[in-house]
Design a protein around this nucleic acid. Structure first.
Length: 355
DNA sequence: CCCTTACCTAGGCT
DNA sequence: AAGCCTAGGTAAG
């Protein structure tokens, strides 16, 4: 029995063909990783806190459980038999996490640099350990189309529904089904928009349908996202903004979080207000294009060359914690019932059409 | 360029 | 209790 088995809570049930793929631990000093804020802070919407300080998330075809204590990041990877048969070569899960969390970048070095030019990084006014995750571009793009006029909780729910509806099942753990993020092909359906509207995506349903169509056509020639990675930030941003529903801010999030442009500073309402209250920017009623550019450029130059990492830390500090009230839980339940009805209708439809 | 307005939805507040 | 506001914005005029 490995040591992490005793550290992570035992699994009550496994079913389907879910298998434990790999487990181990990586030495990570606590200053280098604030796991909760990194995975739940609104970068990715695929992580959940399953118990105190224990997190479970889906990355590509892996279900990953993580716990960080005593300067060690303990992990267990799960996947299904189908995947492990298809890919004979064993994935090095430590390397996988090192890549996902970008551990080659040392936050303490960054904070030392930022502190010299920015007082707010001294005295821990901005917390240490917020890392930028290296995410999958498609998932990142769709997720941030969903983020407009929205909150982390609802975005998480929407992405979960999207994966349930269109993604491939990885397996079941503790009676919960986990799905991969769908591929373009899985999303490319005529009724995508209608269906997403039923799932309460609102006006974002149209944007997603459009984005899928666009990417389907774009990726025919070569790999669209790889092409963007090799463009300059400016050019890649222009490309991304051709997609309906992707404006400057969402484009910048994608550039930063999944296309490796780590000096980009997305300016949202929080960063905007930080710029006004702490860095002497003029207060404007709303974020205009010119204003956005001023603020973004200001921070890029102040925090370079990894300004996006500083932004992630500063942003995380502004997000307020969730409170759970009774009314909130009731509303949540009603909403879930509504979605359940919708799902069961679709389930019946599928059964009929498969006969 | 800047400014408005509409857009879906859920949760919190009054 | 119904109505307003906001939540990591964007498009269209």
């Amino acid at each position: 029995m490995s040591s992490l088995q005793s550290i992570l809570t035992p699994i009550s049930s496994q079913s389907n063909d879910l298998i434990e793929y790999s487990s181990g631990s990586i030495p990570v000093p606590s200053k280098e990783l604030n796991l909760r804020r990194t995975v739940l802070g609104g970068q990715s919407f695929r992580w959940f806190e399953e118990s105190e300080n224990e997190f479970i998330g889906i990355v590509q075809h892996f279900l990953i459980r993580l716990k960080h204590n005593n300067d060690d990041l303990h992990y267990v990877f799960y996947t299904n038999e189908t995947f492990s048969k298809i890919n004979e070569e064993k994935v090095d899960c430590s390397k996988f996490l090192e890549n996902y969390f970008q551990f080659s970048i040392r936050i303490s070095d960054l904070i030392e640099k930022w502190s010299k030019v920015d007082q707010r990084f001294q005295n821990e006014q901005i917390p240490s350990g917020i890392r930028l995750l290296a995410q999958e571009p498609l998932e990142n793009l769709i997720s941030f189309i969903c983020s407009s006029n929205n909150n982390v909780q609802r975005i998480t729910k929407m992405i979960q529904l999207l994966c349930q509806q269109y993604g491939t099942l990885i397996g079941t753990l503790n009676n919960i089904d986990y799905y991969q993020f769908p591929t373009i092909e899985q999303l490319d359906r005529n009724d995508l928009e209608d269906n997403l509207r039923k799932l309460q995506f609102g006006y974002r349903a149209r944007y997603i349908q459009h984005a899928v169509r666009y990417l389907k056509n774009e990726t025919n020639d070569s790999n669209y996202f790889d092409r963007l990675k090799n463009l300059s930030v400016k050019d890649a941003r222009v490309e991304l903004r051709k997609i309906l529903g992707i404006g400057r801010k969402v484009a910048d999030c994608i550039l930063l979080m999944s296309l490796g442009k780590q000096n980009v500073v997305p300016v949202d309402t929080h960063i905007h207000s930080i710029a006004v209250t702490h860095y002497g920017h003029e207060k404007k009623r709303q974020l205009t294009a010119g204003n956005y550019d001023d603020i973004s450029t200001f921070f890029e130059q102040l925090w370079q060359p990894l300004a996006g990492w500083a932004q992630a830390a500063a942003f995380s500090n502004e997000l307020r914690d969730e409170k759970t009230s009774r009314t909130k839980l009731n509303k949540k339940r009603r909403s879930e019932e509504k979605i359940d009805r919708c799902l069961s209708v679709q389930c019946k439809k599928r059964q009929r059409s498969s006969k």
